[in-house]
Design a binder for these strands. Structure first.
Lengths: 251, 251
DNA sequence: CGTCTGTTTGATAGCGCTCAAAGGGGGTGG
DNA sequence: CCACCCCCTTTGAGCGCTATCAAACAGACG
């Protein structure tokens, strides 16, 4: 394990374009520096590419469902996905949103513990779990990288727990907007206006609120002149970032 | 990565005692089969032992605080600890309880993202993060094991998110009692009565409730004859396990 | 232009929080 | 050994935040 793998990469700089050192499609990937693949180069990428299958999803497609046998893992190349868990009576909890560079299937052992739905058109790299496992044997640094990503995911998840357990509806929405903005910056976008690929329903199910409560929280933020509608409802313009930060409850 | 590392070990059997194959203290450890160390043997354990420092904590002691520089990681040998995050205004969220065999410090990169408090007397193995890192270079299987543990922790954390986001107070308490009971079984205990080393306050801060709400939920379960007080308030007797399961909301 | 879906706004209700006080158990000192 | 005290837990009364139910509104699409 290199020492850099132990450092915080939650605040990654925008991806740096590399000069293609190989003919594999990976070489041109725009999110490679964010993904597992960032630790591989040249010939190694070719080997990864050999076991990779391209998959395209349309908005609304489910990639897998909670309880499906988890033989496949994925790497998101472009687009956004939503992970959710369902209670038998229909209550739903969205456990996370995934974007380009995110790894999908890390948690699962025997079966997927949640469902994965495309909330935009999505392009992803599919791997048979066993194939990837075999590659780990040759490139242990991939496992190191995956552990590092798991560590970050765990840290994020615990922030979510704090949010769900102790924050008010406005604090939750404020925290979420800032987080989404930061993530957009990580992917090399401006982060303002904040892109909201998910609907209010998905948002509510992520924040532990109803769509109505999300809507009311947003209205209150608008009334306070802290945010405003972007061009569409899928975009929110942050007018007063400091004000928004103060309303997160995190200070 | 061996294929067994990809299998679900959330339902581990009670620890199997090994015949000591080495003179290191680890050989006699009762939770070794649950911990990172389970993948090491004989000579390898000696190397682990060489960089390990024994630590003892009394109930109430803090091992580290949120924001401290995270140079150390730990393995809990015996006792129970409580991890918590604090908001500036004093609201607290307990993110997890750790028991024998659990790894402490997995999440952290630069600094600890939460505080760790001993809720019973605790014995633990302390490692300098860098020392352990170096050992990973020699024994990549430790990293594999750690990734497997991270995967399980992530799965548990997502159950917690579902609970905090979508469950009622009674469902939260019911889920928690069953989970704690299962964990006790994993450690080789009976699981009934359920040991509750944490106070009602810690419990509430874990469940996203107040102590009063926890108390009321427990009272309701007692009135329904589903649980009853154990010998002390630190123990709860499950009278009707099926009834308790039905009240978790998970069916 | 009409329909359909998703969002916002409004009125009301309920669950869990807050504030308050009583109950209980363990430890300490007399 | 008992009495007292302190802290934790339980119980009670009332309130507030978010859910629920319902309807108006808006935007996308045919």
């Amino acid at each position: 394990m290199t020492s850099s793998e132990f450092t915080d990469n939650r605040s990654l700089k925008p991806p740096i374009r590399r000069t293609p050192s190989s003919s594999s499609p990976c070489a041109a990937c725009t999110v490679r520096d964010l993904a597992v693949c960032s630790v591989l180069e040249g010939d190694e990428l070719d080997q990864l590419n050999a076991i990779m299958i391209d998959v395209n999803l349309s908005k609304g497609d489910y990639l897998f469902h909670q309880g499906d046998e988890a033989n496949l893992v994925f790497n998101i190349a472009a687009g956004a996905m939503q992970l959710s868990k369902l209670l038998p009576d229909g209550r739903r909890q969205v456990t996370g949103f995934l974007f380009g560079g995110d790894f999908l299937g890390l948690v699962s052992n025997r079966e997927y513990t949640c469902s994965a739905e495309a909330i935009t058109d999505v392009r992803l790299c599919k791997f048979r779990r066993l194939d990837l496992q075999n590659l780990f044997r040759d490139f242990p640094k991939m496992e190191t990288r995956l552990l590092s990503m798991a560590r970050n995911e765990l840290a994020e998840t615990q922030d979510q727990i704090l949010m769900l357990g102790r924050k008010t509806s406005v604090e939750r929405v404020a925290s979420f907007l800032l987080k989404l903005s930061d993530r957009a910056v990580t992917r090399g976008e401006s982060g303002n206006p904040v892109p909201l690929p998910m609907g209010r329903h998905g948002l509510g199910d992520y924040l532990g609120l109803t769509t109505e409560s999300v809507s009311r929280a947003l209205t209150r933020l608008k009334n306070k002149q802290i945010i405003s509608d972007g061009a569409t409802k899928q975009n929110i313009l942050i007018l007063d970032r400091n004000g928004l930060q103060e309303l997160t409850g995190d200070l």
